[in-house]
């Protein structure tokens, strides 16, 4: 297992697997605008291409999201990170970790991969400046050894960007 995340170590439960199959079918019929799921035979890890929305700082740029599902998805949030190079954004660290509450303590099982993708694109689109978080270097240094962003205690205070 090359994954750095604890999230993907245990196989999906039957409930998780059924739910993901449904999400995959729905995605194929009705993918969120600006996203492309790169098809693999691994249901537990999705790699999704994101296109920056036209008219935003990220227009004409393409990034990749890696989504790893835990054994008990959707009771627990998926782990979502950007694969390198991560977009320059005040809430996205250079190791690809994303500071967005719905990926952590505000997760709800009513959310789907598709709705999470839309939230991330919305976060990108509303950015007015292309820069790393102020504490990027310190955070990334603390994350060496491949800790998962789900093991970070995030706090969330800024709804402007």
């Amino acid at each position: 297992m090359t994954s750095s995340s604890a999230a993907s170590r245990k196989a999906l439960s039957k409930i998780a697997s059924n739910r993901l199959q449904k999400e995959l079918v729905e995605w194929q019929v009705n993918p969120p605008v600006g996203f492309k799921h790169k098809v693999t035979d691994n249901l537990q890890r999705w790699v999704i291409e994101v296109n920056g929305a036209p008219g935003t700082l990220y227009a004409n740029e393409t990034y990749q999201l890696q989504v790893d599902f835990p054994e008990h998805y959707p009771m627990e949030a998926p782990q979502v990170i950007f694969l390198p190079p991560a977009p320059l954004h005040p809430h996205i660290y250079s190791n690809g970790h994303i500071c967005l509450d719905i990926l952590y303590d505000s997760w709800s099982p009513a959310m789907t991969v598709s709705s999470v993708c839309i939230s991330i694109l919305s976060m990108l689109s509303s950015s007015t400046v292309k820069q790393r978080p102020e504490d990027n270097d310190r955070y990334v240094k603390n994350c060496r050894n491949g800790r998962s962003p789900k093991e970070t205690r995030w706090w969330f205070h800024d709804d402007k960007v």
């Binding site: 955070y139 093991e151 205690r153 706090w155 969330f156 205070h157 709804d159």
Partner: peptide, 13 residues
């Protein structure tokens, strides 16, 4: 509403 940022380390799940 979605909100962002700041972190600390945590035993999370």
């Amino acid at each position: 509403a979605e909100v962002y940022c700041g972190y600390d380390f945590n035993l999370n799940t």
